[in-house]
Design a protein around this nucleic acid. Structure first.
Lengths: 209, 209
DNA sequence: GCACATAGCTGACTGAAAGTCAATGACCGC
DNA sequence: GCGGTCATTGACTTTCAGTCAGCTATGTGC
């Protein structure tokens, strides 16, 4: 990689990081592309060299966040319930530790998918659906969930909980910690959703959160 | 009311109804104020005589929707669980019968409350919090819920379910009916949340959905 | 019936911000 | 050192929300 390419990479990184920071500080709607470029000393046009649209910077941010949480949950040893707890806690940690705007953007995308360009992340709702779908598929492969487990329905019901929690968190002026949310998750007895589909192995490994 | 006032009332109604229709047809972001005013044959400025901001037209629409559902749920005779079912089914009917944009706007407001002007509906998240809070308070008054029932927590947990369901509905390309949602609601065993707080009277009247 | 007041409406205007693109000049390979 | 390329630039276009001074219809007092 020559000097030119290194500098370009640096420029992109600068825009991405400054953008994320400003958006998180002021809110997506209250930061213009020029705010971002001025803050890192480049011209407005440069932004559009690296990002097709203003939104793309936050799409990328969400993608990184989801990917990170997914890796955490998968690398964790334990029962399905424990892994799911990591999943939820990871999301809520991302959200509650300076990720309010990320969370908002995520909800925006979910409620208004046409705002997400088709060439981002392989299609609409791809962030969450893809990861969670694979998560449940793996659980079937590993013999924790029965083969007839309705993957799509499980994905939907879990996301339903996750969306609801995030919306509530936004609503509650961010007064809860990730731990509070895990407790809520358990309280809502989501494991009841899984039970009908657990294998003997899955039950033995503990289905309760 | 003289001719002038009647005509003004008519103008406002025309803008409100045309606006709601266009927004529902094309999506909030894809309808400009001029689209609305042109479609009903008035000047752009007239819009701003009756609505402070573009958003206000959809705020009003949401307010009407929530009010209507609340009236339905309250007028229904039956157990707390039955009333809540009416509540949820009513919301989901509003959403699933041509209310996609309403639903989206609602979620937008919840995740981004600073976008809702403080003078609308008495404050942020007022639509849903107010109605549901009063609903639970009445249940205490009527002796169905115990006096120590944590109203705010119940409101939050129920809204959590509602938001999650709505987000999922937006996500699922509107493939579910309100009945599907009521079934999901029961499935999620929300009644488990209520049980600890039900009075003997409340239990006798049936706590299960 | 006339004159004045004003409610209701108008549409040109302003400002802000997203997104474009031809021009520029620093760097690279030869 | 030279021609070409690639990252960068910033003036420009477009779109749209929101404003406001002015106009006209209607209502009111005489």
């Amino acid at each position: 990689m020559n000097k030119r390419q290194l500098e370009a990479q640096e420029t992109r990184k600068k825009i991405y990081e400054t953008g994320c920071r400003l958006i998180e500080e002021r809110g997506f709607q209250n930061v213009s592309v020029e705010d971002i470029t001025k803050a890192c000393g480049v011209a407005k046009g440069t932004f559009y060299v690296y990002f097709k649209r203003k939104e793309e910077i936050i799409f990328e941010c969400c993608e990184n966040w989801f990917g990170e949480v997914d890796r955490m949950a998968r690398s964790r040893k334990g029962t399905l319930a424990e892994k799911l707890t990591v999943y939820f806690k990871g999301f809520m940690e991302g959200v509650t530790c300076g990720g309010l705007e990320l969370c908002r953007q995520w909800v925006r995308e979910v409620i208004d998918p046409k705002d997400v360009p088709g060439d981002m992340c392989g299609g609409k709702y791809a962030y969450d659906l893809r990861h969670l779908r694979n998560f449940f598929k793996d659980a079937v492969k590993e013999g924790m969930l029965r083969k007839n487990a309705p993957i799509e329905e499980l994905v939907r019901l879990f996301l339903c909980q996750l969306y609801g929690m995030m919306a509530c968190w936004c609503m509650s002026d961010a007064e809860f910690t990730p731990e509070d949310w895990v407790e809520r998750f358990a309280k809502l007895q989501l494991n009841a959703l899984l039970k009908p589909y657990l294998t003997e192995e899955g039950v033995k490994n503990g289905g309760n959160l």
